[in-house]
Amino acid sequence: MSTFEVDLHVNGSRRQLDVKAEETLLDVLHDRMGMSDVRYGCGEGVCGTCTVLIDGDPVSACLLLAVQAAGREITTLRGLEGSAPDGLHPLQRTMLQLGGSQCGFCTPGVILTAVSLGRRNPTATRDEIRHELVGNLCRCTGYTKIIDAIETYLGELGTGTIDAH
């Protein structure tokens, strides 16, 4: 059994820990670092509940070995900067106001995927938003209010009301 000492940079803070080769980033973030916003849903990379951003891009934490994430910038939902006084990211606020969350289990992955989309393509259409989210399954909302929230958020980005941080 191989063990590796790795530096994990999660949400702006650094942590050094020993990981086994076969430990996934999901295992380490959720079970060992208390990042409960990164969730097991399938282990196949299909459902999107373990989505994290690696150097800004969405990745399935269940399909990345923790050793592979060493030294990379890992962002979970809780690492999104909130600029407003309520501490919420602008997309968190539109998700809240427009009811984009029900059971909430898919919410972190949905928000991270959409924030990444906003950085790459802030003028994404409703159809482009839908296509970007194919890998973030939601069983509660029927997606309509999620898409509403993302569309509203991108609209705010477009008018310069907020930044795509």
Binding site: S36, D37, L77, R78, Q92, M95, G99, G104, T107, P108
Partner: peptide
Amino acid sequence: FIDKVKGTMLYAA
């Protein structure tokens, strides 16, 4: 809703 959009809701696991 607030805990859910923040990712701070604690589920069974």
